[in-house]
Structures are given as C-alpha cells and as structure tokens.
Design a protein around this nucleic acid. Structure first.
Lengths: 153, 153
DNA sequence: GTTCCTGCAAAAGATTTGCAGTGAC
DNA sequence: GTCACTGCAAATCTTTTGCAGGAAC
C-alpha cells in the first residue's frame, strides 16, 4: 500500500483534456481552461465549491454554473471521475487510467480525504471486472475510518 | 465473482438493530420499526425517496424527515452503510460485516445498481486496511459501466 | 456573422431543522 | 408525567436550467 504524495504536479492532463474537448467540437473558453489547469494540479478530488474557492483565491473567478457545466462535459468524454464520498457532496478529479490512478481514504470524522494506491487491489479489481457481464468503465474504492488526528481526540 | 441473488430475505438485522438502538437509549417508535424491517428485507441499497415509496406502497406512510433522522441514528451506531453511487443521491443499506457483505455495480446509463461479492477482493482490501494508519471502519467498492441492457442499445 | 461559452438569477431536488402534538416508558 | 418520536412546514444547500451578453472561430 502506498500513500500518495500530496504535492502538486502537472501531468499534461490539462493539455490532453483540451485537445479532447476541441476534437469533440468544444471551443476553449477562459473558464474552462482555468478549471482544467486547476484540476490538473490537484493530487486529489475537489468538490464544485472547493474548485470555485481555489479559483477565486488565485483571482480567476468562475461561476458555479460554469463549473458544473464543465464537469459534465469532461465526465461525458471520460476525462473526469466523480468521487462520492460522504455527506452528499460530489467531488471530481482527472480520470487517470495509467499513472496517477488511485483510491480514497475518508475520515468520517473530519471529512478529510486522501489518496492511496495498491497494486494487489488493482489486480483483484481487474480480475472481478473481467468476469462481469458489464462493460466496465471505471472503478472506485473508498475506505472509511478515523484519521490519525481524529482517532487521537 | 458472485452475483448476489436479488430475492428478499430477512436476516435478523432488524432485531439486532432494534436492540442496539434500545441500548443506545432510543425508544421504539412505529416509523423506526417500519424502516428497520423494510431495510432488512432489501438485497441492495435504497435512497430515502425509495424507502418512502416502498413504505407507502405497503400502507405504512412515514415522513421524509423521519427517514433521514432514522438513517442518521443508524449510521451513528454503525448499523447502516451509505452507498453514494451517482447523481448526488445517497442510498442506504444494512451494514453487514459478515454474510451479506457485498459491493456494487452501477450502470451509468440507466442508474440501476446491483450487488456482487468477491473473496479475493475482500482479501486485498483487508490487506490494505491493515497497513493503513487509519482506524478503518468500512470499505466500499463501486464498479461503473454499462449494464447488459444499456450496452446493447 | 454564427455558434458556443459564461455569468446571473431563478428553479429544482435532496436533506436538515424548528416546532407542536402523540406515543413509549 | 416525562422525554423521546413523528409529521408538517420552512429553511438550507447543492446542482440544474433559462436567458442575455460576450467571446471564439
């Protein structure tokens, strides 16, 4: 099991996404570009509200409606994964099938989420997916518990 | 991998839950009992709306507010698992750590969800959980794709 | 110039809360 | 009789939609 470093890093996902959007007939508006870049820098999933706050804090205001619209477009063409992890809030993150693919730990106490990876787990899921009558597009593993900070209190 | 039969069966979870609620200082109101019994009969997770509809159709009306309140109580004492699986809707199901424990397939097209189990997957998750610095309470695996019906169309 | 993108404001859902009446103990 | 449970209605919060102006092509 690997905890994933939470430092930011850009991986070219934004460029890939922009290209995919262009060839899907979308134009490149400012709000969309700002959102793509923000998402690309994240190590873990953000909610719509968090995306808006992050953009505001770097002086790039984007309306809530645009955020949801961009999320929808990106999900449509498979570039974005939704992570639903608690309290009815939906979070979004770049869908990386290769490197960067990870799952989530959720502290049910403070709501913090953090990413992890595990090759054995991936193998088990691949095996299950292959045996399914479903055409599998994505999978998601969420582990709930109390984080170190909350368990201590 | 095992598809889980979707026939109803009662497993004593309702009684266990009622006892746990009593010893946690709750009284046994009618709405709460009706909800417990309904949940116990389900083979898979229901949303609050679905719970209300199911109860209405058996002439046992329960207000939406009560449903949410009971869900909250049950979740608090660990008898209920939330399954968040798409489109912002939260579903609930009895939390069974032993037999009956299962995960979910979601058709992203029609929204249908169905349960499955896999021992290898459980082993992989247990291994990961043991290695975590978190106190793990639950885990959840969701596989997304297109179901047979939707893939055909 | 046309068509798409964006923001604003309103709408639609889901969930939570306040309060008063009823029921369990 | 007391305190918890329930239903109703109002409030809150997230997400979606309609529309008008501005931007990309």
């Amino acid at each position: 099991m690997q905890r994933v470093a939470s430092t930011s890093r850009r991986t070219g996902w934004a460029e890939e996404a922009a290209l995919a959007l262009t060839s899907a007939g979308y134009r490149r508006g400012g709000a969309r570009r700002a959102i793509l870049e923000l998402l690309d820098e994240q190590s873990c999933a953000l909610s719509a509200v968090e995306i808006q706050q992050a953009l505001t804090s770097r002086n790039r205001e984007v309306s809530r409606a645009s955020i949801y619209r961009v999320m929808e477009e990106l999900e449509e063409i498979g570039l974005l994964a939704r992570v639903e992890v608690g309290r009815g809030v939906v979070r979004y993150e770049p869908s990386r099938h290769g490197p960067g693919h990870h799952h989530h730990l959720v502290c049910d106490h403070c709501g913090r989420i953090s990413p992890f990876t595990d090759e054995g787990l991936e193998r088990a899921i691949r095996r299950v997916s292959d045996a399914l009558p479903l055409q599998v597009s994505e999978h998601e593993v969420v582990i709930h518990g109390s984080c170190e900070t909350c368990a201590a209190s």
